[in-house]
Design a binder for these strands. Structure first.
Lengths: 337, 337
DNA sequence: TTGTAGGCGTTATCAC
DNA sequence: GTGATAACGCCTACAA
């Protein structure tokens, strides 16, 4: 690959001049500029980003940390939004893998964490996707650092850190209000782990509505599990053994879909025998005709990226709360009292 | 962030010595080594990768190009395998976004393509995921370059390029043999675009089996579409209007699932009225009880990454053909003649 | 408008 | 074992 020096020699100018045209500075004679560009083309020259980064401290790449794996209905839509938006701004996306080993000297005891990895790869900013509030101290160093950061679904801010989250409480309120408007009073809840902020907000939304109508959360009907089909299936199987059981289930899509499968396996039909409302509106909900609260995941990725760009440019740091909407399908029925 | 110079000064040694311990070279006095490591820890020193890359020409990151979007049942499992394996080897994954604009000087007419982008970000190798054979010339420069490359599902090799692909022909053979063993003779085919290598191989597998049993591909029953639910749905609707229609459908999962939906919407039940076999065994097949030829996508990512590591280390360049297996569910029935 | 020289943080090649 | 010094490819004062 040709370097700036090669081009300079061929064009009979100094490399500063070449650098000027690379960076599109004014004050370059139009003729020399054209001459240089021509030579660049002929030699298929492209500036080396590492070298540029070294002097400018800009890499035009954004890092992303994901604690579990990418293989998740929710994440991948978010990531698509991120991908697209970052591309629009000329950035690439570095996915930090889960490295078991560290190259470079061992046993120094230095924790190779978010901050180190980020400065190691010299990313211009980072996106934190899929973390929960458990062990929140691990983010301390990061949010105190100068690294522009956007958290998705974790309410954390810092000097140059902010977050984006959906209006989970309002979404849950909509969902439960909907069920109640259909005549349901006995509502089971299938939610994610307690330390996850969105889950907390959703539960608090439920409670508000329950309270409003003089109902209360029945702990027997409240499950906190991982976001898996299997866990939803298990929870529902338990519920089905109860003598006093809910007429409707609200929860997060993955678990609710597991629950639907359990109900069907038990010979019940949906929505005739039992109603379901989900939260997230993942792609799979469509296939189950599941009524669900829709988070715009794509937009989430988009807005997260834009917020990050703004933090990088020191324009704006305010957290974003994304509105949700309700997608009605056919998983609920009207309950005559 | 502390630099190698800071550490050198604090330790009262030259930076060469510090560099030696960074790289774990022998020939460093154990005492000075320990002293230096201690100082590194105290100052939370971490070497700057850009600078290292600049002199070593190694970045410990692998680039990945994906022509469409990541949001796809098949890709995301492959990517998971890639992610995991790369992490195991100490590499991160750079996802090249689809950049509409180019930062850096404009109008030079230089094509900013695979090779340029890769050397721009100085990746150690690249993985090409989701490309087809259409306009195959665009890969010329890449496969002639020195950049270690692995293609997934495109049979292309080069000086330092190789590929991985599933044994699609054998998979199709299994599927069609299965249908025939159940008594089906009239088989409709719902496949992807003709220029996609796996699709070509699958079709050729079908043809072989057909031939063996004295059958032939009925062009009315052969569809080449995009990999979407909608296209499968449409194709099936057409098929359903025919007076002479197939008793079974074989095709790629996404389209087959669309077809199942179309059949159901038309009041048919599966498998009583019509049988289906898919190819890919994407996650969704499980939800439709679809019998499907399983490609091990995770392993595909894993093997692709390992092959790339080997190419980088100049150990091995041979293409990999991955075996497939058959996952029987309940979407087919035995047809009495 | 252009050139010179130093710097970004490393590694590598010599000497000592 | 260790230390200078050049080199990696680019950017940025400062001079001219």
């Amino acid at each position: 690959m040709a370097t700036i020096n090669d081009i300079a020699k061929l064009a009979n100018v100094s490399k500063s001049t070449v650098s000027r045209v690379i960076n599109n500075y004014p004050d370059v004679n139009e003729k020399t500029k054209q001459k240089i560009i021509k030579i660049m083309q002929e030699n298929n020259y492209w500036p080396n980003t590492m070298a540029r980064s070294l002097s400018t401290n800009k890499s035009y790449t954004i890092g992303m940390f994901v604690p579990t794996n990418l293989n998740n209905f929710f994440f991948r839509e978010v990531i698509q939004g991120i991908e697209y938006t970052l591309g629009k701004h000329g950035y690439d996306l570095l996915y930090f893998t889960h490295q078991k080993t560290m190259r470079f000297y061992m046993d120094t005891g230095i924790k190779f964490n978010f901050v180190e990895k980020s400065s190691d790869k010299n990313v211009d900013g980072i996106i934190m996707l899929g973390f929960n509030m458990k062990n929140i101290a691990r983010f301390n160093k990061l949010i105190k650092s100068k690294i522009p950061t956007v958290f998705i679904d974790v309410k954390l801010t810092g000097e140059r850190a902010s977050y984006i989250i959906s209006d989970n409480e309002k979404g849950a309120i909509k969902a439960v209000e909907y069920l109640i408007s259909l005549g349901h009073q006995k509502i089971g809840l299938l939610l994610g782990p307690e330390e996850v902020k969105p889950t907390q907000d959703r539960l608090s939304g439920c409670k508000k509505v329950f309270e409003k109508y003089g109902l209360q959360v029945k702990t027997d009907w409240l499950y906190h599990t991982e976001y898996t089909l299997e866990d939803g299936y298990k929870s529902m199987k338990e519920i089905l053994t109860m003598t006093d059981r809910p007429t409707a289930i609200f929860g997060e899509d993955m678990m609710v879909i597991g629950a639907i499968r359990a109900a069907r396996d038990a010979g019940l039909s949906v929505p005739e025998d039992i109603s379901f409302v989900g939260f997230d509106n993942i792609e799979l909900s469509y296939h189950y005709n599941l009524t669900s609260v829709n988070q715009d995941q794509y937009k989430m990725g988009e807005k997260a990226s834009e917020l990050l760009m703004k933090i990088i440019n020191e324009e704006e740091f305010n957290p974003i709360v994304l509105p949700v909407n309700f997608v009605e399908r056919t998983s609920c029925r009207y309950l005559r009292n």
